[in-house]
Design a protein around this nucleic acid. Structure first.
Length: 93
DNA sequence: TATCTGACGATAG
DNA sequence: CCTATCGCCAGAT
């Protein structure tokens, strides 16, 4: 049975996000690579934006910049999990 | 099936 | 530091 083919990508991305743990941060490119779709960073953003129930706040861009339009909330979630955020950017230590 | 879009990445100015 | 452009991919219409 063909259970909705496009689930391959979205499901893989969701699996990676679910594997993340509180206090962990990852970039879109890293998610795509871990999911098995290197270079599909943009598609990852699409899944996080459309699919709900995902820890989108743990995903930032390659520059460590927070998501535009959700910087405040994301910084709040990350800092609440122990992630250090400065000037809208994630600081890994 | 074709076309446009976008919570990206990197480079250039 | 910011904006603009090109290349990349999957999803939506």
């Amino acid at each position: 049975m063909d259970a909705g083919g496009e689930l391959d990508f979205s499901s893989a991305v969701v699996a990676v996000l679910k594997s993340l743990r509180p206090g962990d941060v990852i970039s879109y490119g890293e998610v795509a690579e871990e999911a098995g779709f290197p270079g599909a960073a943009r598609a990852v953003g699409g899944v996080l934006k459309r699919v709900e129930g995902l820890p989108w706040w743990r995903v930032v861009n390659a520059a460590g910049r927070l998501v535009p339009g959700h910087e405040v909330k994301q910084a709040e979630m990350l800092s609440a999990e122990g992630v250090l955020v400065q000037n809208g950017k994630v600081v890994r230590r």
